[in-house]
Amino acid sequence: MTARGEGEDRPSSVRPLLFLERQSYRRRRLVDAARLLPFLGAGLLALPLLWPDETDGAEALPLSSAMFYIFACWGLLILISLVFGFAARRMAAREKAEPETEPWQR
């Protein structure tokens, strides 16, 4: 399902020459972020392994807090993924519009 208007440029940000380069640069960094996202996720989800449980003698973390943490991480991943999804959509639209964009511009 697509929300209306998400693929359109905001006209306020039109600054021809500089704008183009900056835009493709942002695009690359966005892809980098997308690549790193699963690692962030894996890191966040491995963190609970460090929490104390009753076998450690220390007081174990209450399950409600654990739930809160995990669902918050989960939500964060979804949110970033959502943002990237929309950005990727805009990217695809722009790449279609300017096929001359050099792939080596990183």
Binding site: A46, P48, D53, S65
Partner: peptide, 24 residues
């Protein structure tokens, strides 16, 4: 509900690290 969860028999954080990572 949260209080009930913490008070229940599974109310404490306890996972086996090996199983946690392996299952993910």
């Amino acid at each position: 509900m949260m209080e009930r969860i913490d008070a229940s028999e599974i109310g404490q954080w306890h996972v086996d690290a090996g199983r946690w990572t392996t299952f993910i």
